[in-house]
Design a protein around this nucleic acid. Sequence first.
DNA 1: CCGTATTTGTCCGTATGTATG
DNA 2: ACATACATACGGACAAATACG
Lengths: 244, 244
Amino acid sequence: MPENTGGTPDAPRSLTARAQAGIENLIMNGELRGGDRVNEIALSERFGTSRGPIREACRALAQEGLLVAVPNRGVFVRQLDLREALEVYDIRSALDELMGRSIAERISDAQIAELWTLIDGMDDAAATRDMERYYPVNLAFHNRLLALANNRRLERLYRSLIKELHLFRRKGLLQQGSMAISNAEHRQIVNAIAERDPIAAGVSMKSHVLAAKQRLLAAVEAERSEQLSRGVADQNNGGKRRRA
Amino acid sequence: MPENTGGTPDAPRSLTARAQAGIENLIMNGELRGGDRVNEIALSERFGTSRGPIREACRALAQEGLLVAVPNRGVFVRQLDLREALEVYDIRSALDELMGRSIAERISDAQIAELWTLIDGMDDAAATRDMERYYPVNLAFHNRLLALANNRRLERLYRSLIKELHLFRRKGLLQQGSMAISNAEHRQIVNAIAERDPIAAGVSMKSHVLAAKQRLLAAVEAERSEQLSRGVADQNNGGKRRRA
DNA sequence: CCGTATTTGTCCGTATGTATG
DNA sequence: ACATACATACGGACAAATACG
């Protein structure tokens, strides 16, 4: 009996595709943390398949950058250090500028109104500091922008980069104070888009990402100084070492 | 006994990695054209392995975007239409701007001199219209810029996009008149970098890509009008249809 | 419309290499 | 340092789906 673990019906795709989505979910939900070893046998039992589809799914995820494959040792969940996370932010900033320019060039009045509705929704959630409500609307807002850019390749690439950021060691730091602060930035973005000003839209979207990058840097710095004042030497070594 | 088919020593990586590189080469060399079906059995015989490593390599290449996998039908070499190629150019333009900014911020005098040397080499080749000599130097120039940007993730991403452009249906059109024209653009780029002007460097690199995009558009337009004047109706249907 | 051939999807057995006691 | 346990890497075989005649 396959014993479906999750609650979702699982679309009738190939086993490899299902395993790939499943492993991806395991990573996004934090069930598989950065640096963890991915055991083929355990996963094959969990998904109710043999090891073949699992292996193929791991190759795909390794190419995408979520896993790293070490010959004769296995695959591990990739771990992003601060430097790599900042690199991703820089790339995102460049892509966001392109996105803003593209959107401002071709958006319709109805689509502008739609963006304002999402902004209002975020404002409501932010006013009550309701992160549970803010997060999905924020996601919908950025997904809408992604779609409005009208560039399928950019959409795929951008989503891949977002997933990669989940591999940052302390992904909790990524959203530090994002709710209150970035609301103003969101309004600025939509303002520029509504005025059909490609330059301003690009700049405001780029700045939005770079501001998030700076918030991450500040959060990391704050955490480090706090650890130093506590005299914490090396508290988090999950017992795995990366290869020399 | 494994019986190595090819003549090259083949680095002692895993069979999957070798197969992945091998298939990639087949695509880049044009031995596998866009839309072609990738036969697992034929490739396994060619590489002297079983189907397992081939299948895993195909999953990786599909995730990278070089192949598309259709369930129960097999994997096909992806084919870029004009719209998709233009999308890639737009993305490249954004990444090139980031690259130019990053380089201008941190380049050393010695590295600037190195870039000028490469420019001179391209000038020599361009003066004699020697495409065989121009191409590798041009590649080295852009590879050097990629390395100077000091962003590993950007480097990996950019190379992936370049590979993707090889999947454009008429990749011959991609280099139309690139030799003579883009020399001036290259000098402009290095000039801005040498002056350590991040804004100017970013703009000149972005413009370089967008100019290439315009040259592609012009070449496609020229080809289409020529076909129309000849009365060619539908000459190139390679006998494969994509799924409904 | 049906039967056949070919190809993909999946599973399992074996060998090889690594980590551990 | 040696032997053992374990996981991956690879190969081969069966079943299902598709394409062709």
